[in-house]
């Protein structure tokens, strides 16, 4: 006979088994048997292969855009680049330093945005702030010596004529805002929405645009992109590889 010592002394051990009662022990045995049965029953389902649907959808949209005469942007977050394309031709490539999107926090919890926009074509992009127009008008009455002849006007180079703001937006009709930030100011406050936007959306009242993607570009690239975008630009975002 084994003498019990220390903390175990004086405790009942029915049936010489552990501290659990008999019904509880039965429960655990049944649960164990069930777990084993589930684990051993048949083959485990095959791991689902990665979906190619987003890639197919992306290529379809890209092909559709390439068949149109519309200038479009293709953002590839994986390759960290944004491309300007027209009719299947790659016109410009701007390296992207970072692609981020703000995660809203409400009551200290993070709210994830809906990602259904990833493969769609975002249309009717508008620059915010808009570019100033440098158009000017001259009226001449030919052969009239009193009519002023326009003087040769030497315009400023584009860098001076159209100064790009350090932070600017392309706003699309579907609510997506693409915020482009020059690298030199990327650490500063941007136009990213605050937590109050998420709170307003939570209660169904939002006057803000939806998801805002933020691209950090080299200063020159950001300025060149700002100047060269035509009105009604479209955007396509490449899905992850």
């Amino acid at each position: 006979m084994i003498e019990r010592r220390g903390r175990d002394r004086g405790r009942a051990r029915p049936g010489g088994r552990g501290a659990w009662s008999a019904p509880a022990g039965r429960w655990f045995r049944v649960a164990g048997v069930l777990a084993c049965a589930v684990a051993c029953a048949g083959e485990s389902p095959p791991a689902p292969s990665p979906s190619v649907a987003p890639r197919v959808e992306f290529l379809r949209s890209l092909l559709e855009l390439a068949r149109s005469d519309v200038l479009h942007l293709v953002l590839d977050p994986d390759r960290r680049r944004i491309e300007l394309r027209l009719r299947g031709a790659l016109l410009r490539v701007h390296p992207v330093i970072a692609v981020t999107r703000p995660a809203r926090r409400i009551a200290f919890l993070r709210r994830e945005d809906d990602l259904s926009w990833v493969t769609g074509v975002h249309e009717h992009g508008r620059l915010e702030p808009g570019r100033p127009s440098d158009r000017y008008e001259v009226e001449v009455r030919p052969g009239d010596p009193d009519s002023p002849v326009p003087e040769a006007r030497v315009p400023l180079p584009p860098e001076e004529a159209i100064p790009a703001p350090p932070t600017w937006l392309i706003q699309f009709d579907d609510g997506l805002d693409l915020e482009v930030v020059s690298a030199s100011v990327a650490g500063e406050d941007t136009l990213a929405p605050g937590w109050w936007e998420g709170l307003l959306q939570a209660v169904g009242h939002s006057r803000f645009h939806g998801t805002r993607l933020r691209l950090v570009l080299d200063d020159e690239d950001a300025a060149a992109l700002y100047r060269s975008l035509s009105p009604d630009i479209r955007l396509l975002i490449a899905p992850p590889d």
């Binding site: 292969s49 979906s51 649907a53």
Partner: peptide
Amino acid sequence: ETGPGGRGDPSEL
């Protein structure tokens, strides 16, 4: 079971 867009057909790529 697939994603919301379906799994897609790799032969379409």
